[in-house]
Design a protein around this nucleic acid. Sequence first.
DNA 1: TTCAGATATTGATCCTGATCAATAATTGTC
DNA 2: GACAATTATTGATCAGGATCAATATCTGAA
Lengths: 219, 219
Amino acid sequence: MEPSPQFERIRAYYLSLLPALTGDAWELCTSYFTVRTLKKGEFLQKQGVVANHVSFLNYGLLRMYHLVDGREKVSEFFKEGDYAADYRSFLMREPANTYVQALEETEVVELSFDDLQIIYQRIPEANFIGRLIAEELFKDICRRTTMQVTVSIDEQYAAIVRDKPWLIQRVPQYMIASYLGVTPEALSRIKSRAGKRSRKIPLRPTTPVITEIAAAAKP
Amino acid sequence: MEPSPQFERIRAYYLSLLPALTGDAWELCTSYFTVRTLKKGEFLQKQGVVANHVSFLNYGLLRMYHLVDGREKVSEFFKEGDYAADYRSFLMREPANTYVQALEETEVVELSFDDLQIIYQRIPEANFIGRLIAEELFKDICRRTTMQVTVSIDEQYAAIVRDKPWLIQRVPQYMIASYLGVTPEALSRIKSRAGKRSRKIPLRPTTPVITEIAAAAKP
DNA sequence: TTCAGATATTGATCCTGATCAATAATTGTC
DNA sequence: GACAATTATTGATCAGGATCAATATCTGAA
């Protein structure tokens, strides 16, 4: 509706994606936005429920996790400036298989699925933004996957300390352990052993490496 | 350029996304498409090289993998009807950290990054398609991630046998093992032990479960 | 400040998958 | 069909993380 300071951050975000986003189009968007505040511990999303909103974080911190056999497996953290919510569930209109919970008091700008479709229809450029957001999420999840495959837990933890110190500050260690796919005990030992600096372990291939030369040579 | 049977499959795909894709717009698209054939063993993408094309598979089979410490870690398979290529590298214009290699003779329809940008500019609806494709890729990678976190290797293999029998048929077992994140030996044992049916292991939480009630109660 | 609950560390043991090694089965080629 | 190369299986040992348990540290509220 009216220009609100609560939409400043998301506006800056959108403008960075699409500088030409005009006043009218933006007004239409904001007319569908709603603001919501989550207390620490509250859930933005629960397993089994279809995600009906995407949420842009004005401030605060969320974690996304799977609940498997009574254990929580943290898959992602969201902080101010991020898009949160189970985007898969949101897109597929299927029940989510994750929980999203506030770790701090958090304010989000919400947009419902139906309203987003209206926006896509009325503002063709919105598809551009939607594309960039989907691409952004894709890149993030790729980065994570590559990390998991490429780097040892020790190095992943070191990378977090180096690149995302805010995670260390704001999240209990056992959740970071879960995020890394190990137990709290294991992470504790990883930290302690981090002192004695990285020994290089030379490995040799166990699986045949198909080189292009060798393979392409055979028509 | 001219209506080609080589573009039939991708046309059907696009039409399924956007029925209103008009003849003219489609012609513009096809004018940028190029067809390429890969022999078994040839690479569509190599680590260290910026992915300059997205590739739609007309027929054939590709695998994507990371090379870490001389070992290949398979992260994805692509078959006819899929979009292949290191989309992260393509989007970010950064060197890829993966290889994409043909496991069978494969025909792809390629579109370069620059040409795609032109299409996005000239055909606004293309953003719609681009959004859906990015969303599709996102959903796929989410599905994979959820599997990895949620389900045991045994069950993941069973799921492949059940849901993707073509993988079993067309891909050597040691690549499927790599895809599942285990050694070929381990997968072999998993298969043999698959006979004696799943014993249920009751687990109790090792990490405190923050319930909404408890957490939200504290303002 | 004190205390209780939550979080982190440390130790001992167990278990699964990795590794190393050898053999068997399969596949494709001549 | 026979052979060579690739792929799969099976066995024995090893290593790292999980688990269980105990203690230490931290945090926030009264």
